[in-house]
């Protein structure tokens, strides 16, 4: 699953994530992070046999966890299937099929916004 982790200033100095990885069987990937001494947030993807326990651990340590309900959508009327967005996607969530249609993978998308700001017809929208 993908989720935003919210860190309060109180816990930024604790090595919660490294303890999580040491103690639980989880696959943990940081997609975006913006943490300062004043707290911050991190977009993560977590899976593995002990993912649920791992999430409970993080919550116990004071991290607020919000699973993301992000939708990346393409306005089919506006999209010209040019493919300008394709090379800008850092996680290969944009593909071009054999008929040269541009397709978006909502699951892979991390919501970075490169494609939305670069689309010549503003055909891509990300809703949170």
């Amino acid at each position: 699953m993908k989720a935003w982790l919210k860190f309060s200033p109180r816990i930024v100095s604790k090595p919660v994530i490294s303890d999580l990885i040491k103690d639980y069987d989880v696959t943990f990937n940081i997609l975006r992070a913006d943490i300062t001494p004043k707290g911050g947030k991190m977009l993560i993807e977590i899976s593995g046999s002990e993912a649920e326990e791992g999430i409970k651990y993080m919550e116990k340590e004071g991290i607020q966890l919000n699973p993301i309900k992000k939708v990346v959508k393409k306005d089919e009327d506006k999209c010209m299937d040019c493919g300008e967005c394709y090379s800008l996607c850092p996680v290969e969530a944009i593909t071009v099929d054999e008929k040269w249609n541009v397709e978006l993978d909502d699951q892979k998308c991390i919501g970075c916004g490169f494609c939305t700001s670069s689309c010549p017809t503003k055909a891509i929208k990300i809703a949170y």
Partner: peptide, 13 residues
């Protein structure tokens, strides 16, 4: 390095 087309090949077809 990934490559992007700026013109639509689909539309050209």
């Amino acid at each position: 390095v990934p490559t992007s087309a700026l013109s639509s090949f689909k539309k050209a077809l």
